[in-house]
Simulated scan of single mutants.
Amino acid sequence: MSKPVILCVDDEAVVLDSLKIQLKNAFRDSYGYEMAESSEEAWEILEELSEENTDIVVIVSDWLMPGVKGDEFLIKVHQKFPHVLKIMLTGQADLEAVQKVIKQASLYRCLDKPWNSEELIATIQSGLKDYQSSHNYEQTSGDLC
C-alpha cells in the first residue's frame, strides 16, 4: 500500500521547493509529497492518486494563482474529497475568499506568506491528528490570514 500524500499547490516553483524541503525535514518518509504549479495540474494529480487508491491527507494551496484561484480549487476538492485537510497560504489575503472557503470547504487554516515553517508544520500535525482520530474532522480553526 502506498503512503498517504501531502499535495502542495503554488504557481511559484521556489515556493514549492521550499515547502517540499520543510515537509520532508519534518515528516521524513511518513508521507509522499506531490507538487503542482497550478490548480489544473493539482487536480490531475488528485485524480491519479484517487484512481490508485492513495490517500490524500493534506493540501497546502496558494490563494492567488493564474486561472483557478486557491479558494475555488479547495471548494472543488472538498466536493470530491471532503476529508482532506485543507490549508491555504497567501500573501494577498482576500477576506471574502477566505471566509468563503472556510464555509464551503472546511478550510482548516489560512497562513500568511511568508509563512513560518514551525507554524506550518504544527498546523499540519494538529490537523492530521484530528484527521487520523476521526477521519471526519470538524473545522478547528477559523483563523483568517
Rank of each mutant, 00 (worst) to 15 (best):
M1R: 05
S2R: 11
S2A: 14
V9F: 10
V9H: 06
D10G: 06
L16H: 11
S18A: 11
S18I: 09
L19V: 05
K20H: 14
L23W: 02
F27D: 06
R28Q: 13
Y31I: 04
Y31G: 06
E34K: 11
E34H: 11
S38F: 07
I45C: 02
I45T: 14
I45P: 00
E47L: 15
E48V: 00
E48A: 13
L49S: 01
L49C: 11
S50Y: 10
V60D: 00
D62W: 01
D62C: 03
L64S: 10
L64T: 08
M65Y: 04
G67R: 04
K69N: 11
D71A: 13
K76W: 02
H83D: 15
I87D: 01
T90P: 01
Q92D: 10
Q92Y: 12
Q92E: 12
E96G: 07
E96A: 14
I102H: 15
A105P: 05
A105K: 09
A105G: 15
S106P: 00
S106H: 11
L111P: 06
D112C: 08
N116S: 10
L120M: 12
I121V: 15
A122F: 05
T123H: 08
S126D: 13
S126I: 01
S126T: 12
Q132C: 03
S133M: 10
S133W: 02
S134Q: 06
H135L: 10
E138T: 10
T140P: 03
T140R: 12
S141Y: 04
L144W: 05
